[in-house]
C-alpha cells in the first residue's frame, strides 16, 4: 500500500533530515515509527501526506507515485489519509460537531448525512454528549479524541498519527492508543510516530526505528 524507495529529504542544511529511506507498509498494518527527537519521524509523515516533497527518491501510495502528483491533486490524496497531531489542531472557535464535520463538508455531503456520520463517530470515540462543546471546554484527552474522530470520520484507509499522546498523561495515552488500535482492527492502515518506549513495548506492533534520518 505504501512504499518508499531510496527517499531523501533535505531542508537546505549540511545533513539530510531523511536519508535513503526504504520502507514498505502493507494494507491493514499498524506501524510504530520511533526514534529520538530530530530523528526524522515527523518529516517522514509529512512526506506521506505531502506537506513536504521528497528531495530524492520515490514514494508510492496505492501504486501512485505521489512525487509526480500535481498540486491540485494533493487534496484528493489527503482525503484518503486521516491525520492526528500532537497539538490536536482543532479550531477553538467552533464546536466539536463542526470540527469533526470538516472532512465531510469537503466531500460535499448533505448536512443531514454529515450530522449522522459525525454523531456515529463521536459515539465511537465516546463524546456524543459533548458534540456542542467548544474544544477548550474539553480535557486534553477529549480534545485528542475529537481530533481522531475528525481524522476517521470519512473512513480513510490510512491513518497517520504524529506523537498523538505527546501532550497526554499515561492513562489517557493508553486510551488513545487503544482507540487507534480499534480503528486499525476495523481495517485501517495506521502509522504512528512516537518516542514513547512504553507504548511500543506494551502494544506489539511492527516497529520502524529512525535515528539521524536513517532507518536502523
Amino acid at each position: 500500500m505504501i512504499r518508499l524507495n531510496h527517499v531523501y529529504k533535505n531542508y537546505g542544511t549540511a545533513t539530510d533530515s531523511l536519508s535513503d529511506i526504504n520502507l514498505s507498509i502493507a494494507r491493514g498494518e499498524f506501524v510504530f515509527i520511533t526514534g529520538p527527537s530530530g530523528a526524522g519521524k515527523t518529516t517522514l509523515l509529512k512526506l506521506l501526506f505531502m506537506a513536504e516533497r521528497a528531495t530524492k527518491g520515490q514514494i508510492l501510495i496505492n501504486d501512485v507515485n505521489i512525487g509526480t502528483l500535481k498540486a491540485r491533486k494533493i487534496p484528493h490524496l489527503r482525503r484518503a489519509i486521516g491525520i492526528v497531531f500532537q497539538d490536536f489542531k482543532l479550531l477553538n472557535s467552533i464546536t466539536v460537531l463542526d470540527n469533526v464535520s470538516f472532512p465531510l463538508e469537503v466531500l460535499g455531503l448533505s448536512r443531514r448525512d454529515i450530522k449522522k456520520r459525525v454523531m456515529r463517530v463521536l459515539k465511537f470515540v465516546g463524546l456524543t454528549e459533548k458534540s456542542n462543546y467548544y474544544p477548550l471546554e474539553l480535557s486534553g484527552g477529549e480534545q485528542q479524541r475529537v481530533a481522531i474522530a475528525r481524522a476517521v470520520v470519512n473512513e480513510p484507509p490510512i491513518l497517520l498519527a504524529d506523537e498523538p499522546t505527546g501532550n497526554l498523561d499515561s492513562e489517557l495515552t493508553l486510551d488513545i492508543i487503544r482507540l487507534l488500535d480499534y480503528i486499525h482492527k476495523k481495517g485501517a492502515t495506521v502509522i504512528m510516530a512516537t518516542h514513547n518506549k512504553d507504548i511500543v513495548e506494551r502494544f506489539h506492533k511492527r516497529l520502524v526505528s529512525l535515528d539521524h534520518g536513517r532507518i536502523l
Binding site: 501526506f49 506537506a51 491540485r72 487534496p75 484528493h76 490524496l77 489527503r78 482525503r79 491525520i83 489542531k89 482543532l90 479550531l91 470538516f102 472532512p103 469537503v106 466531500l107 475528525r150
Partner: peptide, 16 residues
Amino acid sequence: KGEIEIMKLVGGTNLF
C-alpha cells in the same frame, strides 16, 4: 490561518 491549514489537511481544495 489555522483554519485554512486544517482545511487543507482534511483535503479541502483551494476553491473550497
